[in-house]
Design a protein around this nucleic acid. Structure first.
Length: 813
RNA sequence: GCCCGGGUGGCGAAAUCGGCAGACGCAAAGGACUUAAAAUCCUUUGGAGGGCAACCUCCGUGUGGGUUCAAGUCCCACCCCGGGCACCA
């Protein structure tokens, strides 16, 4: 009879058909099992899934299946982040209704995910473009508005005068509009809505320490830097002429006697008062130049205002400059320049001939001579030439000096954060409408909760021109004021899509709730997320916003957890032939194409086998062939050995059982600790190689046991094949309803330890001894080894190092 | 410039706590089967040298130093690659 061949297409279609429309894992809130919530980051439905998107799902699905087999009540939901710029651009370009376009893409992606056989609980599917979801974005917005966490202020946006519309940063190309390459983008001030994330800056920073156990160190580091807390002092210099205070922020108030000028950001409000005529025009050019270029490329540039400021400590008069490197959005928008102790100030002052005056000396050194200074001395030391503070160490001086400022009312110790409030206004069609009404009489009026959701009007023209697409829809814009009943206008801005992704994973726990965003009891059961998996590109924005949202919901009394996820994992990128996959390179491999060529199981196995999951991996068809070959060998071996084997047990049985238990141990360890599934799969390949070598010597019961356990171990990686083999073995599936195989360390252990014998650290031989053989015996054995003895001839043994069960190193002279 | 990762055969990689470098796979070469090809199976495969042979010797984890009985792994300096941030006072 010819051997059965592995036909991935046939097998996968068969099981897809059987499991059509069914949810594989159903998570239950009332289960007595321990819970495990595993989540991959939301995909955006661009409709064109390629194998680069596959990796975090392959990892998440393997983990979900493994945890399920370990007896956990697993929640593994799936949904779609379905608002955004691409949908709108597609609508503009293809004249398609964005809602239909999105629905089409969601259906397509769902089909692809089903084809891959991922174990989602489809009964919990959500799409963020559904009013049933975004209604709660609006509800949260109103709650934040009530508590002063949402506010409106003027902010600068990129504006294309040709389109008459707002541009996202990525739509600005070389300072010009992406559609009008010769039209420079302008900065225009618009009233925009903000969420006060800065109010949570301290909490977001402090509770990072709770994440240290389960989040990658680099993500936490990036977040710490992003939040950017710095301690220092705010000090008022005074305008000489009027006595008007100019507040500066500094981390080095101890250097203030070395301040030789005050520098204002060009946008600083005082600038408008201080400068006139030509200088004013010069300042405007400075602002525009910076907007067009981006801060990194700008040369330091300064303008003297002609005014003087008074140092509140020394009474000294110093010039006031305007500097293009001073940021209005950080600190107070004004700095004191201490060129002797700050490299950037040093460069600026040298450029403009402003005096440089050292006031800090190293603890065990002398004060630098200003005329010979080559670079700034930025470190702490001892104060000199600093009036009553001379002789104090920097740290103490900072404390004393800010205390004095506070006492005498010209400043205080202060903390500044780099993080800014979160601007959520988007002048776009495709997002959650901001639920606010502007009444000429009552002002800003929130939409009453009973009128939610404010729904996006469908079927309207989207041209990409004008302030916002919604503004051109009178049926949407014109409303009665909920307070006074007079004619009023709606807010036409929609929300940033990061709002959608900030709390979607809570909605999964209760996706159909129509009276609340979710039932708090269900959240209390499932949260925090046990494992979140996604790309490193979200390390900052998405992950800070969702942490912020969690803290706000906790303060609203909706949830009790302070962080959304206890563990976070960032998978590496998938490359194709060593280059990032992209349409322009033409190296995109679609999931459909891959499944037709190799099968879903092969795709998963290869993506996990080619590299450890946190590293980037290179997709090559040859490599995928290798993974296919492995699955095919497993299939052929299993099908030809079902109910086969020698009647009597023998030596081969013992060896193969040992290998089996070693393999189970290895893969279990990989799942429990570091997720190096590449080595897990390598271990299964090793087991299969040993099985093939001993094929004819294995007894029937051992063969049956090995095949059963191998199939169970395949389940997280190649579920279709596992299911098929399970059926071949005469068992009833699904496989994930069965327990993960246990290993016995006694069986897994080698009978004898192989002990390496080194002479002066070089490998010279091996000896074999039972585990736990005492040091003395090992030393004797090693010294007695004939090969070793030959090498020791005429040499003197200085020392012998014995590592039990491992190694003997003989040091000779 | 700063911060964070990396650098191991022809290639992807393994070596989890300082203890046998190169597991597992790809590619390649040779062989078996075949009219032939595909598929499958077997053998070889870090480099150099030696031996009729079982095998043996030396070198080898980006570079140069160091610690150690022992270094891919720890320390110092440097080079290169990738990612992030970029005048943050």
């Amino acid at each position: 009879m010819p051997e059965k061949q592995y036909d991935a297409q046939h097998i996968e279609l068969k099981w897809q058909e059987r499991w059509k429309d069914s949810t594989l894992f159903e998570a239950e809130e009332n289960s007595s099992k321990p819970k495990f919530y595993v989540l991959e980051m939301l995909p955006y439905p661009s409709g064109q899934l390629h194998i680069g998107h596959l990796r975090n799902y392959a990892i998440g699905d393997a983990l979900a299946r493994y945890k399920r087999m370990r007896g956990f009540n697993v929640l593994h939901p799936m949904g779609w982040d379905a608002f955004g710029l691409p949908a709108e651009n597609a609508a503009i370009a293809n004249q398609r209704d964005p809602y239909e376009w999105t629905q089409f893409n969601i259906e397509n992606m769902k089909r692809q995910h089903r084809r891959m056989g991922f174990s989602y609980d489809w009964s919990r599917e959500i799409a963020t473009c559904d009013p049933a979801y975004y209604r709660w974005n609006q509800w949260f917005f109103l709650k934040m508005l009530e508590r002063g966490l949402a506010y409106r202020k003027q902010a600068l946006v990129n504006w294309c005068p040709e389109c008459g519309t707002v541009l996202a940063n990525e739509q600005v190309v070389d300072g010009c509009c992406w559609r009008h390459e010769s039209t420079p983008v302008e900065q225009r001030a618009l009233e925009q809505w903000f969420l006060r994330i800065t109010q949570y800056a301290d909490q977001l920073l402090n509770s990072i320490q709770d994440l240290e156990a389960g989040w990658p160190e680099r993500v936490l580091l990036m977040q710490r830097n992003w939040i950017g807390r710095s301690e220092g002092a705010e000090i008022d210099f005074h305008l000489e002429k009027t006595g008007q205070p100019i507040r500066v922020f500094t981390t080095r108030v101890d250097t203030i006697y070395g301040a030789t000028c005050v520098i204002l950001a060009p946008e600083h409000p005082l600038v408008a008062e201080l400068v006139t005529g030509d200088t004013k025009a010069q300042v405007k050019r400075m602002i525009d130049a910076r907007a067009a270029k981006g801060p990194g490329d700008v040369e330091k540039e300064g303008i003297f205002t002609g005014h003087q400021a008074v140092n509140p400590y020394s009474g000294e008069k110093i010039p006031i400059w305007i500097g293009n490197f001073v940021l209005m959005g950080y600190g107070t928008g004004a700095i004191m320049a201490v060129p002797a102790h700050d490299q950037r100030d040093f460069e600026f002052c040298r450029q403009y001939g402003i005096p440089i005056r050292p006031v800090i000396r190293p603890v065990d050194g002398a004060l630098a001579d200003a005329s010979s200074l080559k670079e700034a001395f930025p470190d702490d030391g001892i104060l000199e030439n600093s009036g009553p503070f001379s002789g104090l160490p920097s740290e103490e001086a900072r404390r004393v000096m800010s205390a004095q400022a506070e006492k005498e009312n010209f400043g205080k110790a202060a903390v500044t954060f780099r993080i800014k409030d979160w601007g959520i206004s988007r002048q776009r069609y495709w997002g959650t409408p901001i639920p606010v009404i502007y009444c000429p009489k009552c002002g800003i009026v929130p939409v009453p909760e009973k009128d939610l959701p404010v729904v996006l009007p469908l079927g309207i023209p989207i041209t990409g021109k004008g302030r916002s697409p919604l503004e051109a829809v009178p049926e949407f814009m014109n409303v009665k004021c909920p307070k006074c009943g007079e004619a009023a206008r709606r807010e036409s801005d929609t929300m940033d899509t990061f709002v959608d992704s900030s709390w979607y994973f809570y909605r999964y726990c209760d996706p159909n709730n129509s009276t609340a965003p979710f039932d708090s009891k269900k959240i209390a059961y499932w949260f925090p997320i046990d494992q979140y998996i996604g790309g490193i590109e979200h390390a900052i924005l998405h992950l800070i916003y969702s942490r912020f949202w969690t803290k706000v919901m906790r303060d609203l009394g909706l949830i009790t957890n302070g962080e959304p996820a206890t563990r976070m994992f960032n998978q590496g990128m998938v490359l194709k032939d060593s280059a990032k996959m992209s349409k322009s390179r033409g190296n995109v491999v679609s999931i459909d194409e891959m499944v037709e060529k190799f099968g879903a199981d092969t795709g998963r196995v290869f993506e996990l086998f080619a590299a450890p999951p946190e590293k980037e991996m290179d997709w090559t068809d040859a490599g995928a062939n290798g993974a296919y070959g492995f699955l095919a060998r497993v299939y052929r071996f299993a099908t030809r050995n079902v109910a086969q084997g020698q009647p009597a047990p023998g030596e081969a049985d013992r060896k193969i059982l040992r290998k089996l238990h070693q393999t189970i141990q290895k893969i279990t360890d990989d799942f429990e600790s570091r997720w190096h599934f590449n080595t897990s799969i390598a271990a299964m390949m090793g087991l299969l190689n040993d099985l093939t070598d001993a094929e004819k010597q294995i007894s029937a019961p051992v063969m049956a046991e090995v095949l059963e356990k191998l199939t169970l171990m395949l389940e997280p990686f190649a579920p279709y094949l596992a299911e098929e083999l399970w059926e071949e073995l005469g068992r009833t599936g699904p496989v994930f309803n069965h327990s993960w195989p246990a290993y016995d360390p006694e069986i897994a252990r080698e009978e004898e330890a192989e002990i390496v014998v080194q002479v002066n650290g070089k490998l010279r031989g091996r000896i074999y001894a039972a585990f736990g053989t005492p040091r003395e015996t090992l030393e004797k054995l090693a010294l007695g080894d004939s090969k070793v003895r030959a090498l020791l001839d005429a040499k003197q043994v200085v020392r012998v190092i014995v590592v039990p069960d491992k190694l003997v190193n003989i040091v000779v002279k």
